[in-house]
């Protein structure tokens, strides 16, 4: 090959590497500056799009649910309340160090936890042996708690109340 061709190939390879890296910046930009916001005009033209996305994100327009306490409905500690004021995380389990101790042979020592994400409390199962049930269904992924939902761990059931 001629000198010039070799030179071009030599430059070319490094250039291709850099084009590859710079093209990834399009993805990273979304991390730094957030998702692109839909303009008002586009929103007016496509009302279904916004309505659909609000519903899929679980946003309830009929008033925000801000629970302040956990009310235990059944189980050994039935009738007691645990305050949520000022808490960001509630660890639930049989271990004495848990925020909410459940003395139940079907509960694991670190069974589940409630985490405050923005305004919402999210329930997450911590790989417990017998599972955490929300409204009768066993949960596998973290789930946002809404008003009136009942959580069951072993024989203990409780709900969040405002």
């Amino acid at each position: 090959m001629s000198e010039l061709a070799l030179f071009l190939v030599r430059i070319g390879f490094v250039a291709v590497l850099w084009v590859f890296i710079l093209s990834l910046l399009s993805v990273i930009r979304a991390d730094l500056y957030g998702r692109r916001v839909i303009s008002r005009i586009a929103r007016q033209n496509a009302p279904q799009l916004t309505a659909g996305s609000a519903a899929s994100l679980g946003i309830d327009d009929s008033g925000v649910f801000e629970p302040t306490q956990i009310a235990v409905l059944t189980g050994r500690t039935a009738g007691t309340n645990i305050s949520l004021e000022g808490k960001k995380e509630v660890l639930i389990g049989r271990a004495p160090s848990s925020d909410m101790v459940i003395s139940d042979e079907f509960a694991s020592s670190m069974h589940a936890k409630l985490v405050l994400v923005g305004q919402d409390w999210v329930l997450q199962d911590l790989n417990s042996t017998n599972g955490t049930h929300l409204d009768g269904k066993k949960i596998t992924t973290p789930v946002t708690i809404k008003a009136g939902m009942t959580i069951r761990i072993g024989t203990t059931t409780f709900e969040l109340r405002s």
């Binding site: 390879f13 490094v14 590497l17 850099w18 890296i21 990834l24 991390d31 985490v115 999210v122 973290p142």
Partner: peptide, 28 residues
């Protein structure tokens, strides 16, 4: 690959670490 190539390789490492830190940042 020269200085330009070495920087490209280091940039790739940087991106791998950055993606990992992003997982740490977004995970609940």
């Amino acid at each position: 690959l020269g200085l330009a190539g070495v920087f490209a390789i280091l940039a790739v490492y940087l991106l791998i670490v950055y993606r990992g830190l992003r997982v740490a940042n977004t995970h609940q």
